[in-house]
Design a protein around this nucleic acid. Structure first.
Lengths: 150, 150
DNA sequence: TTCTTTTTCATTGTGCACAATTTAACGGCG
DNA sequence: CGCCGTTAAATTGTGCACAATGAAAAAGAA
């Protein structure tokens, strides 16, 4: 082991590169599980919110997923094209678009039943370790967002 | 706190969502640091490899960054357009393209000096914790790739 | 050598991310 | 009421990721 400087610029030392790789690796691991359902990973995330929390506006989806309308508008349009959700302007506020699961979108939930355990298994960690790691990562994430420069 | 099932499908419980968010948050944190240099984060990663390891083929870059030619070809073309690298077919193997830093590309390295410490500071962790977390994430990443289904 | 397979890179097409702008609707406020 | 700043989505444009395909060169087999 060579001694490393206090803050190394080496590629493999970078926390961001590790996160970037891990995120892509896990998303790739989801792909063969989601492909049969006709979903991408971001589409699956949007459905998770709808399954958990019911009809949501684009704004609400964006807050939960940390995504803006530039990403969500076309994504939701594709979910609508697949017959999984409907879009409706709110009568009480015509600016907002309420996204609601269709019957097909609701039923799709059952077919995602085994996905989580497969993903957790692929990480090679047991549940306590996985939860601890997830919390650490979430803390870093929150801290990075808080220290964003104006 | 409500008791959670063994493997929760809830959005906020998911390790992948945490990784996905953290990766985007850190990349966003890099953006104002890299914008003045005219670089994106993936372009910065490619330059890191070239700064560390010298002239590299597209294949070598791809192995280091876990990216394929479909991503790297246009990325390298943009680096070439910015005058930071040159591309040359290897005389001994005309299939391979060697990417070499130009003077400008080499000099750019100096202007990235303070970036790492700023990013590390933004995570809110000290160096030992940061290294431990990075290693854990890299382990998960490697395990996920190993357990990819055929 | 000739034929076949593999390797390396580029290209095409789809779907995110995200900045910047636009459009329409809402909420005051005079 | 008309005016104005704000807000919610959508749109536009750029740059990744990645699957799939194509093209050219190299390596091997017959």
């Amino acid at each position: 082991m060579s001694p490393s400087p206090a803050v190394s610029p080496l590629l493999d030392d970078q926390i961001c590169f590790a996160l970037y790789n891990a995120s892509r690796a896990l998303t790739a691991r989801y792909r063969p599980l989601l492909d049969p359902l006709g979903l991408t990973y971001p589409q699956y995330l949007a459905l998770l919110v709808l399954w958990e929390e019911g009809p949501s506006t684009v704004l609400h989806l964006g807050e939960r997923l940390m995504l803006d309308s530039g990403t969500l508008s076309p994504l939701v349009r594709r979910l609508e094209g697949a017959g999984l959700v409907t879009r409706m302007r709110l009568p009480e506020d015509e600016r907002s678009v309420l996204i609601t699961l269709t019957e097909a979108g609701d039923r799709l939930r059952e077919r995602t039943a085994g996905i989580q355990s497969q993903i957790c298994g692929a990480t090679g960690l047991d549940l306590p370790d996985l939860h601890a790691l997830r919390d650490q990562i979430a803390d870093v994430s929150a801290h990075v967002r808080e220290t964003a420069q104006p």
